[in-house]
């Protein structure tokens, strides 16, 4: 099997099969809703859809999204952008991906989903001697347009929200994002949040949080303020905000219900004193992400 074949396999699996942790979370959400309710009907349809797509190896959502590859840096010579493009073109031909990439101004369709900057490829450095360095992986995420349109960035202070440059302000931004999004990003979704950084880093880091398994806790390191000797437990904050978001009652597809978010993942990045961004990346329930050892 060539590397291109392997990547084509990764694309097929990613497009047709939801990650186990996400499907488990949807099942748990389904059990919480009253039988016959709008929320239960939607969640049941989603679960049926996932089973059908997996069985027939067809895309589980017709918007196969923007393709972003994260490649461990040690694979740089083997898994080149050219190799990835070849695999994407073949996967498109085989119907694992929709023709989903157009010129931004003319609307011309790149029928093989390949162009300058498409797919998006990031090479990731792993810590020296780590297990991920010894056993390098390629990770793919497919993110549809409906959910991408719901991502947003706040700049603190935000007068309309009454959100200041503190944790209370951050909380206001995150809950505002959930309330404004309603079901439009195809709820129940997953939030990836970056507190701090510059604008571009904010979006990048927020999106990277969507790669974390739903049961993975945040590390407490990020928010420690050394001079004040104050440490904030990010994992606890994740749980608190997830509960608060779900208490809004927006529910699957915005029709009301107990589960609006399947997960909420936080990270922080240092900022310059003049800027304080809170960046929220929204991912739909069809959170297609997958890693493969090479």
């Amino acid at each position: 099997m060539t590397i291109v074949d392997k990547i084509v396999g990764l694309i097929r699996e990613t497009s047709s099969s939801l990650p186990e942790d996400v499907e488990k979370a949807i099942k748990a959400a389904y059990r919480k809703e009253e039988k016959g309710s709008a929320a239960a009907t939607v969640l049941k349809t989603i679960l049926d859809n996932c089973a059908l797509a997996r069985r027939e190896q067809t895309p589980l959502c017709q918007d196969t999204g923007t393709l972003t590859f994260f490649v461990d840096a040690s694979l740089r010579r083997k898994v080149t952008p050219a190799v990835l493009k070849k695999a994407v073109a073949r996967a498109t031909e085989l119907g694992y991906l929709r023709k989903n990439c157009i010129d931004s101004i003319t609307g011309y369709s790149y029928d093989d989903n390949c162009a300058e900057g498409a797919p998006v490829v990031h090479y990731v450095d792993r810590p020296e001697g780590s297990s991920s360095q010894r056993d390098p992986v390629v990770t793919l995420i497919l993110k549809g347009g409906g959910s991408e349109n719901m991502s947003r960035q706040y700049s603190l202070p935000d007068a309309t929200l009454g959100a200041g440059r503190d944790l209370a302000g951050v909380r206001k931004c995150i809950l505002d994002a959930v309330q404004k999004t309603q079901g439009y990003g195809c709820a129940p979704g997953i939030l990836g949040v970056c507190i701090g950084g510059d604008r571009a880093t904010g979006y990048e880091v927020a999106k990277e949080q969507l790669l974390r398994p739903l049961d993975e806790k945040a590390s407490a390191r990020g928010l420690s303020n050394r001079s004040n000797n104050q440490t904030i437990d990010l994992a606890r904050l994740e749980r608190q905000l997830l509960d608060e978001a779900n208490s809004l009652g927006i529910g699957p597809m915005g029709l009301g219900g107990k589960t609006t978010l399947l997960g909420l993942k936080l990270a922080t990045r240092p900022r310059v004193p003049a800027s304080f961004f809170v960046t929220v990346a929204y991912m739909c329930w069809a959170a297609r992400r997958r890693s493969m050892r090479m």
Binding site: I46, D48, N49, C284
Partner: peptide, 13 residues
Amino acid sequence: VQAVGGAAAVAAK
């Protein structure tokens, strides 16, 4: 009637 966004496979079926 709200169809389920993203559930393209069951809809097609």
